[in-house]
Simulated assay, not measured.
Amino acid sequence: MLTNVLAKALRDQGRALLGWCISVALLIAMYVAFWPTVRDQPSMSDLLDQMPEAFRALFASSGADMSTPTGYVEVELLAFMGPAAVLMYAVGSGAGAIAGEEDRHTLDLLLSNPVSRSRVVLDKFLAMTAGTFLIAAVMGVALVAEGNLVDLDLPAGKVAAAMLHLALLGVVFGTLALMLSASTGRTGISKGVPALVAVVAYVVNGLAPLVDWLADIQEFSPFYQYIGHDPLRNGLDGGSVAISAATAVVLLAMAVLGFRRRDVDA
């Protein structure tokens, strides 16, 4: 098992992943249960329109109408809670991939086996990516399956596109955490820096329509690649997918290089 780092990583996070999947399914069930009440209360959309413009820009897609299934899901789930859940898992998994092994004093045992440092980083990345995509997939399946029970009708293809963009958002920040974990061996830094970058990126993307100088850098925000093209309405955006994937590949290469050059504490 120690020589198969990917299998070890998946085994180590198996129970946690199961907990995440159950929690996500329950989260979706909560939002689905609220849908009939929101649908039958037109004042909810009016309340959204009365919110301060900056608040609305941060927590609601442009033109979102909470009286429609798509608008409701965009505001209640995709704008904040969905990304928050996926990022919490991905960043935690990426940060613990190397630094967590060092904290538990198991990394030296792992590296004493016939596996290269590059292989360790790559397999840890694959495990984090698999977990992130699994959580996003559970979220998407729960949205469609549970939503059908209360007439929260969403096109399965558009939901799949939104979940793919969401998973890639998680992978980008998870790989950033992995890069810091591999390069520094510090769990705190590996979690704190991606969290800070995520908050800044979220604010930049949300307030860009209101602030001219933020509009100039909006497309550099991973959140723009995630939600800027409104995948729940418009489907998959190939350019955004390519940018997110390329960003993760660059960060992965930096993680491999950083880990290969670093002295590892026993």
Rank of each mutant, 00 (worst) to 15 (best):
T132M: 07
V121L: 07
N148Q: 14
E76D: 10
A127C: 10
S116R: 13
S62Y: 12
L143V: 03
A79I: 02
T132A: 06
N113H: 15
D103I: 07
G140M: 05
P69R: 03
E101Y: 07
P69Q: 02
G147H: 00
E102S: 09
D123W: 10
L77P: 02
D108M: 14
L111Q: 07
D123M: 13
V73Q: 00
V86R: 00
V115I: 14
S112D: 13
V115A: 11
L111D: 03
L78K: 01
V75A: 02
R104S: 14
P83Y: 06
A99K: 01
L126M: 14
T106H: 10
L126Y: 10
P69S: 12
A60G: 04
A136G: 07
K124G: 12
D65L: 09
D65A: 12
L58N: 03
V150P: 04
S118N: 15
V120H: 01
T68A: 08
F80Q: 05
A130M: 12
T132D: 03
A64I: 05
L143A: 02
L126W: 12
A130H: 05
M88E: 06
D65Q: 08
A90E: 04
L77R: 00
A127V: 08
V150H: 02
P114L: 13
M88K: 09
N148A: 14
V120P: 00
F133T: 09
S61W: 07
E76W: 04
A84G: 12
A136F: 01
L87F: 08
S112L: 06
E101A: 11
S62I: 13
A127W: 02
G96W: 00
V86F: 04
A99D: 03
V120Q: 01
G147Q: 00
A145C: 08
G63M: 07
S112M: 09
N148P: 01
K124F: 03
D65C: 04
L78F: 12
E74F: 05
M128R: 00
G140D: 05
M139I: 08
A95Y: 00
S118D: 15
G140L: 07
S118G: 15
G140T: 05
T129R: 02
A137L: 15
I135C: 09
S118R: 14
T132Q: 02
A137N: 11
H105M: 14
L122H: 13
E74W: 05
V150D: 06
F133M: 13
D123G: 13
T132K: 07
G82S: 10
V144A: 04
F125V: 08
A99F: 03
F133K: 13
